[in-house]
Design a protein around this nucleic acid. Structure first.
Lengths: 242, 242
DNA sequence: TAAATAGTGTCTGTAAGACACTATTGA
DNA sequence: TCAATAGTGTCTTACAGACACTATTTA
């Protein structure tokens, strides 16, 4: 401990991104096919090393987001998910990864301007199924990201980040149903989101088509935290006593 | 990006601990007075560099906990709080800190066997008051730790980690009041915690003295998550509409 | 018109908050 | 006995969930 010659070990830092979106009412995550060697050919979360010693973590995450998904910093939620530093997780040495969670509306498919053209949206259920194991410990990171997103939907207005600038209440409901993996009653959902003041606000005189009556359009309101929270059904991992 | 000679920058990793306890019904945090140079003489969270390149993060946190607070890994909650890596936060170079949150019952004061004898329990309000600024960005880390602890009390059974092996409901209530900074109705609190199945279980035939009627003793039960959650009053940062 | 989706009204059960009341101790 | 804390009962209000019902579109 007081060895005058001891020097602390250094590590390599990477930033990895869990980028979620919704497609066909299903939660998708952006994965890339690795073109270089550890885990070459395997699917992995987008990410990479810090560029230089002075690069801050959040900007690095935004840089990766732009490089690998073509997504600018606008309108984009990005939050720290956790740090993954188990020795041996990366065969190249001691590599510690800072994971960030990002959420984006559905994009025009091509991911134009993307550095890694092999980037593709993959259903989360498929990515976690194990049929094509993810590189490194990215399965764990993705699992944690899903759980974090589920929690965020309960207490924050983040669900609107999955939607475009305007959206119907049914579309917002589809977000909750996809992320939580449940079915919700449209009438109760309708009243609930309307009753949370500032969550969503009417947009324009508005209408839109589907197959039935046109729905009003909304945009996300100023409120970022939800009180009372949206309640997730099956939220009862605890009635074992019955 | 494809410069064959580019090598990723390395960083130094530290583990910092936010260790909370309750003393005289007030939330306290363990701080040490720094004996070495950056910020020598200032108060700081306990922590330190990784010992060697193969050391995992959580074990490193436990090691620091033992070295600086004399706390073994038993009965001790320790969870990742976040990562703090702003360039320039440490004058020694690029140092990235992984912060952990720990909670412990009130200890016999001396912190026996502690490596840093200068460790002392400080009221959180005082530590955050700015009258004696903390080293590095530890004020931010501590602020985040407090908020995390507040959230954990809502949805997890973590509050019992502040108490000894057995405790009265009034003692448990004091934990909530101290961490949340609110007053709770003892009768409603009593019924609430009793109604959450498996949160606390009766301990012994039991009694204890204070100044009034003796209280039953409890110990923490098998339940780790609380459903429905404990509701934090003033939980309404959103009724601005009035 | 039927089918489909949007949106409203209303009932019921659960639980939070307020608070009167009883119980059991020490002084 | 009073003061203090432990513990119970009950009322009110709010809200989640269930679901009947109306409204507005396309086919």
């Amino acid at each position: 401990m007081s060895d005058g010659h001891w020097v602390p070990p250094t590590v390599l830092l990477t930033v990895d991104l869990v980028i979620f979106t919704l497609r066909e009412s299903e939660l998708h995550v952006l994965l890339i096919e690795r073109g270089v060697d550890p885990y070459r050919g395997a699917l992995a979360l987008p990410g990479g090393f810090l560029n230089h010693e002075q690069e801050d973590l959040l900007p690095a995450a935004h840089r990766e987001l732009a490089e690998e998904a073509g997504l600018g910093p606008d309108r984009l939620h990005l939050e720290q998910l956790g740090i993954y530093g188990m020795p041996g997780r990366d065969p190249r040495g001691r590599v510690v990864s800072v994971a960030y969670l990002a959420i984006t509306p559905r994009l025009p498919e091509p991911l134009a301007g993307t550095d890694a053209a092999e980037a593709s949206w993959t259903p989360v259920a498929q990515a976690l199924s194990g049929e094509a194991p993810l590189a490194f410990d990215h399965q764990q990171i993705l699992t944690d990201g899903v759980e974090r997103a589920r929690e965020k939907l309960e207490r924050s207005a983040l669900a609107t980040a999955f939607c475009g600038p305007t959206f119907t209440i049914a579309e917002l409901q589809a977000v909750y149903e996809a992320v939580w993996g449940v079915r919700l009653d449209p009438r109760n959902f309708y009243r609930k989101v309307q009753s949370v003041d500032g969550f969503i606000v009417p947009a324009g005189p508005t209408r839109k088509t589907d197959g039935g009556r046109p729905a009003r359009l909304f945009r996300s309101g100023p409120r970022t935290t939800l009180h009372p929270p949206m309640t997730r059904p099956q939220d009862l991992p605890g009635k074992e006593k019955t």
